[in-house]
């Protein structure tokens, strides 16, 4: 029982960065842009937060940090970093109509490089003997949980034991889902992604919608990186530590058939699949089976992708103009 509770807790913690990433990507894709730069953006979101908090800790000393500032500074620097990434992507794909796949991949190369470069540089500045930056003090502030969580037994542990960013992730996903399906803005956004010519004819500023949603999507995805380093990794940045979670976030978008609400559950599920190898042992199979278990999220995603394309249910398809740039005078 305790093991199950612990598993679910860990699954949720694994799921939160994925949820940020997939919510951001869902918004972006709904505007018709397949942003393969998400993994890079999440790296940048993480390192920008690390940079902010690193210099803050350096300045005042780890012992004297103000909990509020310790949270707000990395939060803002992280958002700024991912916003700039989003702007680069938008400028190239929306304004200059560059190929989205190539731009996205270049952005990922750049972002991962950016993260590891500054991570490495900070490690050098900090003079740490380990290949990592440790920001335990800041992390502690990020990890503040509700005081009564542990007194509520299993329910408390399952529902209330997480840090605030985890709840932010869920709230953001819920808000995104609400906006997409129940507001005028959402209607317009979906129209832009489905059929930009129609949206344009209806008087919707297509490029503005693309810019704003892609940038908001980037900022949200970047928070996933920040959560990972500040909370999941307890404030320890090590180069490459974030791994391929960004691509997993892209996979969740398909799995969740472009719905943020489903993405919440999908992220936790994928978080669980990501770590399930620690909890199951199949008789006759050793530790190596873990690696096969790690395949599960991708396999499941593929199956969903195949089934949705076979069933041709219109609502489960990718946005119709996904990946195509729009030019009004193309005839």
């Amino acid at each position: 029982m305790t093991m199950l509770v612990q598993f679910i807790q860990r699954a949720v913690m694994q799921g939160v960065p994925l949820l940020f990433g997939s919510t951001g990507e869902i918004l972006t894709e709904k505007s018709g842009h397949l942003n393969l730069g998400i993994p890079g953006i999440m790296y940048v979101g993480a390192i920008s937060g690390v940079i902010g908090s690193f210099f803050y800790e350096e300045k005042v000393g780890a012992a004297n940090i103000n909990p509020f500032l310790a949270v707000i500074i990395p939060l803002l620097t992280s958002m700024l970093g991912s916003l700039i990434m989003g702007l680069i992507y938008c400028f190239l794909t929306v304004s200059l109509r560059a190929n989205q796949n190539v731009t996205g991949l270049a952005l990922t190369t750049f972002g991962v490089g950016f993260g590891n470069f500054f991570g490495g540089s900070l490690i050098k500045i900090s003079g740490s003997s380990m290949p990592a930056i440790t920001l335990s003090a800041t992390s502690k502030c990020f990890k503040t949980t509700l005081p009564f969580a542990n007194s509520l037994g299993v329910i408390g542990k399952l529902l209330f034991s997480y840090s605030f960013l985890a709840y932010v992730a869920i709230v953001v996903a819920l808000i995104a889902g609400y906006i997409l399906n129940h507001t005028r803005t959402g209607l317009h956004l979906r129209a832009v992604g489905e059929n930009p010519a129609t949206a344009d004819a209806a008087g919707i500023n297509v490029n503005r919608y693309k810019y704003v949603t892609t940038c908001i999507g980037s900022v949200i995805a970047g928070l996933g990186g920040l959560y990972y380093v500040m909370d999941y990794a307890s404030g320890i940045w090590s180069n490459g530590g974030f791994g391929d979670r960004g691509w997993l976030a892209v996979a969740i978008v398909i799995f969740a058939i472009w719905r943020p609400n489903i993405a919440i559950l999908a992220s936790i599920l994928f978080g669980g699949l990501f770590i399930i190898y620690n909890y199951v042992s199949i008789p006759g199979m050793g530790i190596e089976a873990q690696e096969l278990f790690k395949m599960l999220p991708y396999l499941v995603t593929l199956i969903v992708l195949i089934i949705t394309s076979m069933r041709e249910k219109r609502e489960s398809q990718p946005p119709q103009s996904l990946g195509l740039s729009y030019f009004r005078e193309d005839r």
């Binding site: 129609t198 949206a199 209806a202 119709q320």
Partner: peptide, 23 residues
């Protein structure tokens, strides 16, 4: 026709309207 296929008639009709009060 300039219509979004996966939208309902109403959704297509109100598309692009900004000044209609609450959605």
């Amino acid at each position: 026709f300039k219509l979004v296929d996966i939208f309902t008639a109403t959704e297509n009709i109100v598309l692009g309207l900004e000044d209609e009060g609450r959605y």
